[in-house]
Protein backbone atom coordinates (compact mmCIF):
# COMPACT_ATOMS: atom_id res chain seq x y z
CA UNK A 1 0.00 0.00 0.00
CA UNK A 2 2.85 2.38 0.71
CA UNK A 3 3.63 3.13 -2.87
CA UNK A 4 3.80 6.35 -4.80
CA UNK A 5 2.74 8.85 -2.15
CA UNK A 6 5.08 9.60 0.74
CA UNK A 7 3.66 8.52 4.10
CA UNK A 8 1.61 11.07 6.07
CA UNK A 9 3.34 9.97 9.21
CA UNK A 10 6.44 7.90 9.72
CA UNK A 11 7.32 6.67 13.20
CA UNK A 12 10.72 5.13 13.87
CA UNK A 13 12.09 3.54 17.03
CA UNK A 14 9.43 5.15 19.22
CA UNK A 15 9.97 4.52 22.93
CA UNK A 16 8.09 5.71 25.96
CA UNK A 17 9.38 4.69 29.37
CA UNK A 18 7.42 5.99 32.35
CA UNK A 19 9.59 6.42 35.46
CA UNK A 20 8.31 4.87 38.68
CA UNK A 21 9.14 7.41 41.36
CA UNK A 22 9.68 6.36 44.91
CA UNK A 23 10.71 7.87 48.20
CA UNK A 24 11.05 11.41 49.47
CA UNK A 25 13.27 12.63 46.64
CA UNK A 26 11.04 10.96 44.05
CA UNK A 27 13.96 9.25 42.37
CA UNK A 28 13.18 6.96 39.47
CA UNK A 29 13.22 3.50 41.01
CA UNK A 30 12.44 1.78 37.73
CA UNK A 31 10.65 2.23 34.45
CA UNK A 32 7.46 1.01 32.84
CA UNK A 33 8.56 0.07 29.33
CA UNK A 34 5.16 0.96 27.87
CA UNK A 35 6.39 1.42 24.31
CA UNK A 36 9.79 0.00 23.52
CA UNK A 37 10.90 0.60 19.98
CA UNK A 38 7.93 0.83 17.64
CA UNK A 39 8.18 1.77 13.97
CA UNK A 40 5.42 2.13 11.41
CA UNK A 41 4.14 4.47 8.74
CA UNK A 42 0.72 5.44 7.46
CA UNK A 43 0.17 6.49 3.86
CA UNK A 44 -2.44 8.94 2.61
CA UNK A 45 -5.91 7.43 2.58
CA UNK A 46 -4.71 4.37 4.45
CA UNK A 47 -5.78 2.84 7.75
CA UNK A 48 -3.24 1.15 9.96
CA UNK A 49 -4.84 -1.03 12.60
CA UNK A 50 -2.90 -1.43 15.82
CA UNK A 51 -4.05 -4.37 17.92
CA UNK A 52 -3.01 -6.01 21.14
CA UNK A 53 -4.19 -6.94 24.60
CA UNK A 54 -4.86 -4.24 27.18
CA UNK A 55 -1.65 -2.95 28.68
CA UNK A 56 0.49 -3.65 25.63
CA UNK A 57 1.14 0.04 24.99
CA UNK A 58 -1.34 0.74 22.17
CA UNK A 59 -2.81 3.84 23.77
CA UNK A 60 0.62 5.13 24.71
CA UNK A 61 1.63 4.90 21.04
CA UNK A 62 -1.43 6.99 20.15
CA UNK A 63 -0.60 9.62 22.75
CA UNK A 64 3.08 9.72 21.90
CA UNK A 65 2.31 10.19 18.19
CA UNK A 66 0.31 13.31 19.06
CA UNK A 67 2.90 14.27 21.68
CA UNK A 68 0.29 14.19 24.42
CA UNK A 69 2.99 12.27 26.24
CA UNK A 70 6.59 13.11 25.44
CA UNK A 71 8.33 10.19 23.71
CA UNK A 72 11.48 8.97 25.45
CA UNK A 73 13.22 8.20 22.17
CA UNK A 74 12.52 7.79 18.49
CA UNK A 75 11.33 10.05 15.73
CA UNK A 76 7.93 10.96 14.32
CA UNK A 77 8.09 12.49 10.88
CA UNK A 78 5.09 14.42 9.60
CA UNK A 79 5.63 15.86 6.12
CA UNK A 80 9.36 15.33 6.50
CA UNK A 81 9.58 17.20 9.82
CA UNK A 82 10.51 15.36 13.00
CA UNK A 83 7.83 16.62 15.40
CA UNK A 84 9.58 15.15 18.46
CA UNK A 85 12.14 17.93 18.12
CA UNK A 86 9.65 20.81 17.84
CA UNK A 87 8.95 23.24 20.65
CA UNK A 88 5.39 23.47 21.98
CA UNK A 89 4.79 26.62 19.93
CA UNK A 90 6.14 25.09 16.71
CA UNK A 91 4.08 21.98 17.35
CA UNK A 92 0.83 23.96 17.22
CA UNK A 93 0.82 24.22 13.42
CA UNK A 94 1.41 20.45 13.13
CA UNK A 95 -1.48 19.74 15.49
CA UNK A 96 -3.82 20.84 12.71
CA UNK A 97 -2.71 17.85 10.67
CA UNK A 98 -3.31 15.19 13.31
CA UNK A 99 -6.31 14.82 15.55
CA UNK A 100 -7.59 12.20 17.93
CA UNK A 101 -10.86 10.43 18.70
CA UNK A 102 -11.02 8.98 22.18
CA UNK A 103 -12.38 5.75 23.57
CA UNK A 104 -14.77 7.01 26.23
CA UNK A 105 -17.55 9.07 24.65
CA UNK A 106 -18.59 10.27 28.11
CA UNK A 107 -15.39 11.86 29.36
CA UNK A 108 -14.11 13.11 26.03
CA UNK A 109 -16.61 15.99 25.78
CA UNK A 110 -16.71 18.87 28.25
CA UNK A 111 -20.13 18.53 29.95
CA UNK A 112 -20.48 22.30 30.35
CA UNK A 113 -20.03 23.22 26.71
CA UNK A 114 -22.66 22.82 24.01
CA UNK A 115 -21.92 20.35 21.23
CA UNK A 116 -21.59 23.29 18.82
CA UNK A 117 -19.06 25.06 21.04
CA UNK A 118 -17.03 21.86 21.34
CA UNK A 119 -16.79 21.40 17.58
CA UNK A 120 -16.21 25.13 16.98
CA UNK A 121 -13.41 25.41 19.50
CA UNK A 122 -10.55 24.11 17.30
CA UNK A 123 -11.53 26.72 14.67
CA UNK A 124 -11.28 29.49 17.24
CA UNK A 125 -8.05 28.25 18.77
CA UNK A 126 -6.31 28.15 15.40
CA UNK A 127 -8.11 31.28 14.20
CA UNK A 128 -9.38 29.43 11.14
CA UNK A 129 -12.81 30.97 11.33
CA UNK A 130 -14.73 33.23 13.67
CA UNK A 131 -18.29 34.49 14.07
CA UNK A 132 -20.68 33.50 11.29
CA UNK A 133 -18.06 31.65 9.28
CA UNK A 134 -17.25 29.46 12.28
CA UNK A 135 -20.94 28.88 12.88
CA UNK A 136 -21.49 27.78 9.27
CA UNK A 137 -18.44 25.53 9.29
CA UNK A 138 -19.66 23.91 12.52
CA UNK A 139 -23.07 23.25 10.99
CA UNK A 140 -21.37 21.73 7.97
CA UNK A 141 -19.26 19.46 10.21
CA UNK A 142 -22.37 18.35 12.10
CA UNK A 143 -23.99 17.31 8.86
CA UNK A 144 -20.87 15.51 7.67
CA UNK A 145 -20.90 13.26 10.72
CA UNK A 146 -24.62 12.59 10.48
CA UNK A 147 -25.93 15.00 13.12
CA UNK A 148 -28.45 17.79 12.60
CA UNK A 149 -27.20 21.38 12.74
CA UNK A 150 -30.07 22.06 15.16
CA UNK A 151 -28.34 19.80 17.69
CA UNK A 152 -25.48 22.27 18.05
CA UNK A 153 -27.20 23.91 20.97
CA UNK A 154 -27.54 20.71 22.96
CA UNK A 155 -25.21 19.65 25.72
CA UNK A 156 -23.24 16.36 25.56
CA UNK A 157 -25.46 14.61 28.12
CA UNK A 158 -28.40 14.94 25.73
CA UNK A 159 -26.71 12.71 23.16
CA UNK A 160 -26.32 8.94 23.06
CA UNK A 161 -22.90 7.29 23.14
CA UNK A 162 -22.78 6.90 19.36
CA UNK A 163 -23.85 10.50 18.79
CA UNK A 164 -21.21 11.70 21.23
CA UNK A 165 -18.60 9.80 19.28
CA UNK A 166 -19.87 11.59 16.15
CA UNK A 167 -19.35 14.93 17.94
CA UNK A 168 -15.82 13.78 18.80
CA UNK A 169 -15.22 12.95 15.14
CA UNK A 170 -16.62 16.34 14.05
CA UNK A 171 -14.24 18.04 16.49
CA UNK A 172 -11.34 16.04 15.06
CA UNK A 173 -12.35 16.96 11.48
CA UNK A 174 -12.73 20.67 12.19
CA UNK A 175 -9.16 21.54 11.26
CA UNK A 176 -9.09 19.36 8.12
CA UNK A 177 -6.42 17.02 9.46
CA UNK A 178 -4.61 14.47 7.32
CA UNK A 179 -4.30 11.88 10.08
CA UNK A 180 -6.84 10.85 12.70
CA UNK A 181 -5.69 8.70 15.58
CA UNK A 182 -8.55 6.65 16.97
CA UNK A 183 -7.86 5.23 20.42
CA UNK A 184 -10.41 2.42 20.52
CA UNK A 185 -13.05 4.82 19.17
CA UNK A 186 -15.79 2.20 18.99
CA UNK A 187 -15.03 -0.21 21.80
CA UNK A 188 -17.30 1.58 24.28
CA UNK A 189 -20.29 1.43 21.92
CA UNK A 190 -23.01 -1.15 21.27
CA UNK A 191 -22.25 -3.48 18.37
CA UNK A 192 -24.92 -1.97 16.08
CA UNK A 193 -23.66 1.54 16.82
CA UNK A 194 -20.06 0.40 16.30
CA UNK A 195 -20.92 -0.53 12.72
CA UNK A 196 -22.48 2.89 12.08
CA UNK A 197 -19.49 4.77 13.46
CA UNK A 198 -17.03 2.60 11.53
CA UNK A 199 -18.96 3.13 8.32
CA UNK A 200 -18.92 6.88 8.99
CA UNK A 201 -15.14 6.78 9.47
CA UNK A 202 -14.71 4.81 6.23
CA UNK A 203 -16.96 7.19 4.28
CA UNK A 204 -15.02 10.18 5.59
CA UNK A 205 -11.78 8.48 4.61
CA UNK A 206 -12.94 8.01 1.03
CA UNK A 207 -14.19 11.60 0.77
CA UNK A 208 -11.21 13.32 2.31
CA UNK A 209 -8.34 10.91 1.70
CA UNK A 210 -7.85 10.72 5.47
CA UNK A 211 -5.29 8.48 7.09
CA UNK A 212 -6.19 6.59 10.23
CA UNK A 213 -4.14 5.08 12.96
CA UNK A 214 -6.84 2.86 14.36
CA UNK A 215 -6.22 1.29 17.74
CA UNK A 216 -8.43 -1.56 18.86
CA UNK A 217 -8.51 -4.88 20.58
CA UNK A 218 -11.46 -6.16 18.54
CA UNK A 219 -9.99 -8.03 15.57
CA UNK A 220 -13.27 -8.13 13.65
CA UNK A 221 -13.42 -4.32 13.69
CA UNK A 222 -9.78 -4.03 12.69
CA UNK A 223 -10.23 -6.48 9.81
CA UNK A 224 -13.16 -4.44 8.54
CA UNK A 225 -11.55 -0.99 8.60
CA UNK A 226 -7.79 -1.51 8.16
CA UNK A 227 -5.57 -1.75 5.12
CA UNK A 228 -2.58 -2.86 7.13
CA UNK A 229 -2.35 -4.25 10.65
CA UNK A 230 0.35 -4.14 13.32
CA UNK A 231 0.14 -6.52 16.28
CA UNK A 232 1.66 -5.25 19.51
CA UNK A 233 2.84 -7.27 22.46
CA UNK A 234 4.45 -5.71 25.53
CA UNK A 235 5.49 -2.43 23.92
CA UNK A 236 6.79 -3.94 20.69
CA UNK A 237 5.34 -4.73 17.29
CA UNK A 238 5.53 -8.51 16.79
CA UNK A 239 3.87 -8.76 13.39
CA UNK A 240 3.17 -6.18 10.71
CA UNK A 241 1.53 -6.95 7.40
CA UNK A 242 -1.27 -5.96 5.11
CA UNK A 243 -4.66 -7.05 6.32
CA UNK A 244 -5.27 -9.97 3.99
CA UNK A 245 -1.87 -11.53 4.59
CA UNK A 246 -2.10 -11.15 8.33
CA UNK A 247 -5.56 -12.61 8.68
CA UNK A 248 -4.98 -15.44 6.19
CA UNK A 249 -1.43 -16.33 7.06
CA UNK A 250 -0.45 -15.18 10.57
CA UNK A 251 3.17 -16.08 11.29
CA UNK A 252 3.78 -15.00 14.86
CA UNK A 253 2.45 -17.47 17.48
CA UNK A 254 0.90 -14.53 19.36
CA UNK A 255 -1.05 -13.38 16.29
CA UNK A 256 -2.19 -16.97 15.71
CA UNK A 257 -3.46 -17.14 19.26
CA UNK A 258 -5.28 -13.81 18.92
CA UNK A 259 -6.94 -14.90 15.68
CA UNK A 260 -7.98 -18.26 17.03
CA UNK A 261 -9.73 -16.49 19.89
CA UNK A 262 -12.06 -14.67 17.48
CA UNK A 263 -15.44 -16.42 17.45
CA UNK A 264 -16.55 -17.71 14.06
CA UNK A 265 -20.31 -17.62 13.41
CA UNK A 266 -20.34 -21.19 12.05
CA UNK A 267 -20.45 -24.11 14.51
CA UNK A 268 -19.37 -26.69 11.91
CA UNK A 269 -16.00 -25.06 11.31
CA UNK A 270 -13.27 -27.07 13.00
CA UNK A 271 -10.38 -24.97 14.12
CA UNK A 272 -7.13 -25.64 15.83
CA UNK A 273 -7.50 -23.47 18.90
CA UNK A 274 -4.36 -22.09 20.33
CA UNK A 275 -5.16 -20.75 23.77
CA UNK A 276 -2.59 -18.77 25.66
CA UNK A 277 -1.78 -19.49 29.27
CA UNK A 278 -1.27 -16.80 31.87
CA UNK A 279 -1.31 -13.02 31.66
CA UNK A 280 0.72 -10.39 29.90
CA UNK A 281 3.98 -10.03 31.89
CA UNK A 282 4.57 -6.71 33.61
CA UNK A 283 6.07 -4.01 31.37
CA UNK A 284 8.08 -2.90 34.44
CA UNK A 285 10.18 -6.03 34.22
CA UNK A 286 9.80 -7.46 30.72
CA UNK A 287 11.02 -11.05 30.14
CA UNK A 288 14.50 -11.59 28.75
CA UNK A 289 15.00 -12.52 25.12
CA UNK A 290 11.72 -12.65 23.23
CA UNK A 291 9.12 -10.88 25.40
CA UNK A 292 6.57 -13.53 24.39
CA UNK A 293 8.60 -16.58 25.46
CA UNK A 294 6.78 -16.93 28.80
CA UNK A 295 3.50 -17.70 27.01
CA UNK A 296 4.65 -19.04 23.67
CA UNK A 297 3.53 -22.61 22.86
CA UNK A 298 6.51 -23.10 20.52
CA UNK A 299 9.20 -21.71 22.81
CA UNK A 300 12.77 -22.90 22.25
CA UNK A 301 15.89 -22.48 24.38
CA UNK A 302 17.41 -19.50 22.58
CA UNK A 303 14.08 -17.56 22.67
CA UNK A 304 14.77 -16.92 26.35
CA UNK A 305 18.17 -15.42 25.66
CA UNK A 306 18.09 -13.56 22.39
CA UNK A 307 15.47 -10.97 21.45
CA UNK A 308 14.22 -11.46 17.86
CA UNK A 309 13.97 -8.49 15.52
CA UNK A 310 11.29 -7.73 12.93
CA UNK A 311 12.26 -9.51 9.73
CA UNK A 312 10.64 -9.58 6.33
CA UNK A 313 9.29 -13.06 5.60
CA UNK A 314 8.20 -12.08 2.11
CA UNK A 315 6.16 -9.32 0.50
CA UNK A 316 6.56 -6.79 3.29
CA UNK A 317 5.21 -9.19 5.90
CA UNK A 318 7.27 -8.42 9.01
CA UNK A 319 7.48 -10.92 11.87
CA UNK A 320 9.50 -10.82 15.04
CA UNK A 321 10.07 -14.53 15.78
CA UNK A 322 13.14 -16.78 15.74
CA UNK A 323 11.10 -19.64 14.32
CA UNK A 324 10.31 -17.79 11.11
CA UNK A 325 12.83 -18.19 8.33
CA UNK A 326 13.79 -14.84 6.84
CA UNK A 327 12.99 -14.10 3.22
Amino acid sequence: MTGATPPVIEVAGLKKHFPIRKGLLRRAAGFVYAVDGVSFSVAEGETLGLVGESGCGKSTVARAVLRLVEPTAGSIHVDGTDITRLSKAELRTYRRQMQMVFQDPFSSLNPRMTAGAIVREPLEVHRVATGRAAEERTAELFEQVGLRAGQMRNFPHQFSGGQRQRISIARALALNPRLIVGDEPVSALDVSIQAQVINLLMDLQREKRLSYLFIAHDLAVVEHISHRVAVMYLGKIVEYADKKTLFRDPRHPYTEALLSAVPVPDPTVKRTKRLLQGDVPSPVNPPSGCAFHTRCPLVEAHCKVEAPSLRDVGGGHLVSCHLQPGA
Binding site: L68, R96, M98, F102, E121, S168
Partner: peptide, 24 residues
Amino acid sequence: AFVEAAHAIGMSEFRIAVRHILPN
Protein backbone atom coordinates in the same frame (compact mmCIF):
# COMPACT_ATOMS: atom_id res chain seq x y z
CA ALA B 1 -10.21 12.84 28.02
CA PHE B 2 -11.74 16.22 27.14
CA VAL B 3 -8.70 17.95 28.62
CA GLU B 4 -6.47 15.64 26.59
CA ALA B 5 -8.57 16.48 23.53
CA ALA B 6 -7.99 20.17 24.25
CA HIS B 7 -4.23 19.53 24.29
CA ALA B 8 -4.50 17.61 21.02
CA ILE B 9 -6.27 20.57 19.43
CA GLY B 10 -3.33 22.74 20.44
CA MET B 11 -5.03 24.91 23.03
CA SER B 12 -2.89 26.97 25.40
CA GLU B 13 -2.61 25.80 28.99
CA PHE B 14 -4.30 29.00 30.15
CA ARG B 15 -7.29 28.47 27.89
CA ILE B 16 -7.63 24.86 29.03
CA ALA B 17 -7.55 25.89 32.69
CA VAL B 18 -10.08 28.68 32.23
CA ARG B 19 -12.42 27.21 29.61
CA HIS B 20 -12.35 23.52 30.44
CA ILE B 21 -11.40 23.07 34.07
CA LEU B 22 -12.79 26.13 35.84
CA PRO B 23 -16.42 25.81 34.64
CA ASN B 24 -16.48 22.23 35.88
